[in-house]
Design a binder for these strands. Structure first.
Lengths: 119, 119
DNA sequence: TAACTATATTACCAATTAGCAATATAGAAG
DNA sequence: CTTCTATATTGCTAATTGGTAATATAGTTA
């Protein structure tokens, strides 16, 4: 099916780009990945990522401001959880695309030697 | 359905982040958007985006290196076209997410005045 | 109240990058 | 070959940002 093309203003493009920018940092992806199975405290995220506390806190702030994670205080701890399921969808789409691209590149550099089996 | 969690190496996270980074620039999104309906020459892209030639050329190079667009020479012209359909999928997912988020924010600041109709 | 713990904020530095101008290259045409 | 057109590359500058250390704040406990 054909996709409906919609005109996009510069402001709209900027918003979309900003969302991608939030996801364009390995550390933030790592944090989101630790939250895959559900809510974690900041301390648990720090332990899982082995990153500096200030760094984790900053990235969590960015993720929250982008609306990707929720914040909840629980006594001394603060718990974060993913609140935008499209995060998974986006990462899966990118992974699939990267996989296809690498697979195609393998094909290109694989000599077509008869008798040599491929995987 | 539950999603299968897969461990991701730092290298994998870097690759995924790099893909998002390519999409994290409004000008590149604008260029991709002009290619929505199919192949265009660089000149046509420049005209559509009203951007400087050097800038468009640089961004096209980045998009090509990321494997998002294809390059084809045609005489004096060079034609580009989107060769990774996940680009559309990603942008649509982001747009939907942003839409939902803004709609929720509207609800939050909308006073629940009885008798005042909402859209 | 004071002391303690978990998290957030601030300040700084180093590295990256978008935009722009100038120049270079590839192909067509004469 | 020379000239012209379309596109690519290079060099520069200004702005952004991730990581880190130091400090501040919120909530708990005594």
């Amino acid at each position: 099916m054909a996709r409906a093309k919609k005109e996009l203003s510069d402001a709209a493009l900027q918003m979309i780009a900003n969302r991608f920018k939030v996801l364009a940092e390995p550390m933030r992806l790592k944090i989101l990945h630790t939250l895959w199975d559900g809510e974690l405290t900041v301390g648990e995220i720090i332990a899982a990522t082995k990153a500096f506390q200030a760094n984790v806190s900053k990235h969590l702030g960015i993720l929250q401001q982008a609306g990707l994670v929720n914040r909840r205080r629980d006594g001394l701890n603060v718990c974060y959880r993913i609140c935008d399921e499209t995060v998974f969808e986006l990462c899966e789409a990118v992974c699939a695309s990267l996989h296809d691209r690498l697979a195609a590149q393998i094909d290109e550099i694989t000599p077509a030697v008869p008798g040599r089996k491929r995987a």
